[in-house]
């Protein structure tokens, strides 16, 4: 696959109260953005485990977005602070595992920021396109060439 044709697959975990609503607003405002991103709704960004992020990459995602309420605005008071810290550790671990930390992106998108949601989707798709495919799907140990 040439880089030109590369269409990255991105999983986006959106918190119910801010970012999912922001994504809806982008729709209501008919903002257009690339179709590369698949949203998974969680109640709070802090629900997202590092395991979900690693699993996404392992299963073939080229990028993962975690989006939540702006710090201080968390519907659950302080969930997004946990998310900041988890994402920070995650990025360090990803780097050790030879995965570019920039493939994981943390964004604060409020329910009023439909435009920002669309922009983040666009930027992230572009950025991941530039980084290139990660392609971990199918490189589990089973397929690892030993012989």
């Amino acid at each position: 696959m040439s880089d030109e044709d590369f269409e990255p697959k991105i999983i986006a975990f959106l918190c119910n109260w801010c970012s999912y609503a922001g994504a809806d607003l982008a729709g209501v405002s008919r903002e257009q953005y690339p179709a590369n991103i698949l949203n998974i709704k969680v109640m709070c960004s802090s629900r997202v485990s590092p395991e979900h992020v690693l699993r996404s990459f392992k299963k073939g995602a080229d990028g993962v977005l975690i989006a939540g309420c702006h710090p201080g605005d968390c519907h659950y008071i302080n969930g997004n602070y946990k998310t900041i810290r988890k994402a920070d550790l995650m990025k360090k671990i990803m780097e050790d595992f030879g995965i570019k930390p920039t493939r994981l992106r943390l964004e604060w998108i409020s329910s009023a920021e439909g435009g920002k949601f669309a922009r983040v989707m666009e930027e992230m798709t572009e950025e991941v396109k530039e980084i290139g495919p990660l392609n971990l799907d199918g490189t589990s140990l089973e397929d690892d060439t030993d012989e």
Partner: peptide, 27 residues
């Protein structure tokens, strides 16, 4: 995944005190 479980647990309970007054970088 033992490692990411520990990472998640530890990140959740570290630096809770005063986190609301910190910048993202400080967190």
């Amino acid at each position: 995944d033992q490692g990411s479980r520990m990472a998640s647990a530890l990140a959740s309970v570290m630096g809770i005190e005063g986190e609301e007054n910190k910048t993202e970088e400080e967190v």
